[in-house]
Design a protein around this nucleic acid. Sequence first.
DNA 1: CAGTGGTCTAGACCACTCT
DNA 2: GAGTGGTCTAGACCACTGT
Lengths: 250, 250
Amino acid sequence: MKEQIADELRTAILDGTAPAGSQMPTEPEVMSRYGVARGTARDALGLLVNEGLIVARRPHGYFVRDRRAMDYRPQTDSSVLPATSPRDTFLTEQADRKPTQTIDVAIVQPAPTIARRLQLKDGEAAVVRRRIRSLDGEPYLTNDSYYPLDIAQGTAIMSPEDIAQGANRVLVDIGFAQVRAVDEITVRMPTPAEVNRLDLAPGTPIACHMVTGYTAEGRPVRVVENLLPGDRHVIIYDRTMIDESECEQP
Amino acid sequence: MKEQIADELRTAILDGTAPAGSQMPTEPEVMSRYGVARGTARDALGLLVNEGLIVARRPHGYFVRDRRAMDYRPQTDSSVLPATSPRDTFLTEQADRKPTQTIDVAIVQPAPTIARRLQLKDGEAAVVRRRIRSLDGEPYLTNDSYYPLDIAQGTAIMSPEDIAQGANRVLVDIGFAQVRAVDEITVRMPTPAEVNRLDLAPGTPIACHMVTGYTAEGRPVRVVENLLPGDRHVIIYDRTMIDESECEQP
DNA sequence: CAGTGGTCTAGACCACTCT
DNA sequence: GAGTGGTCTAGACCACTGT
């Protein structure tokens, strides 16, 4: 039964009958319309919540979420040049939204996923610059950069302010220029801590974009962990084609 | 209460106390251990299911899922060359797993997301080659390629068999060589149809990787929609660095 | 105040699978 | 047969918000 209810509502959402922002039936309405108990009505609506299709806005009811991330946004002609790296683009036009960011710096024992990429020995510490970027107060990206403590110690990296020329410039100046980077993009559900930090609605997955930078000697000197809410980003990559079969098998 | 129960179990999973494959308490065990009703015990475990951390295997119980997608896999030295496109890598070593694929071809009215990219007029049809790729019978990727009907009509693209030289070769031969492609990667929860097709566990998000190919004249002649289960893929991108600040802001 | 969703209880029946 | 999770019912109290 709950599947049947969810199917009907989901169809209305996906075929446009219930556009983004429109209201779903309330729980009591579902109960009487389908003759089910409240638990069942909640289960049905809960399915759609976990699929990221609707959101509960108490005490108003359930509403269809905006899923612009799945819509097509044509490329401008100025972006025909092949990109040298993926580009994450925020969906809403940034022109009329006020960008802000918070930065804090700490010395930490990084999580294993970070420590392995930095090739830290057991218990070795790292410096992390944690950033949250927001548009009109809504977080749209966290950007945490980790550096081995012995490298970052005493540099501008340790100061919790924006580094005008970029942290990579600082690394160059102290002899740790990066010549290679490995990007890894994974997709998963957020932890509760990440839900808090990014103010995520239930049913919102995230992309985790890790960049590991290496010096010419092959030493990893920097790991960047970007967390991108799935409902607020499209990663775009524009390229001219070298081998005509390269997009056959991704 | 359910949050408290979920917190304890989640901590055990994330800090390694409960490794992948280990069993979680059953619902009756949670009830007696925390003195709650069954509904609350289910709600607590359900949170972890929706976070993709555990999976219910009836009639055995709940078990910790394998989250290898988040683990580091070092790059081999042979991959130091800059990539010209993102690479999706399947996690498990493919050497000892048998790859299979199913193909079917159909003439359809594609979904709006596809039709817009192909610049189809209202009601115009397209040819779709739908592929499911599996390893040892477990689907790990769907790969659907859409072509305007007037282009694909009567070519090898219409035949539901593997095209040895690749479909792009066919397009070249009939005068529709692609010179540019736009990749778009979005992250979202799957629809029930996608859950079926990819045999996804609850709480598994997917990456949708769309590639739109254009001819020199700027006509889109092909749209590829790859669906990648979040628990079975890491997208890796290895590059030499041109601008030292380019990975600062993703 | 009324109405919303969030949480919790206490029961019930079911399909399934392993022993 | 025993035990598992999946589903559903019928009730209760709560915090919050808008009128």
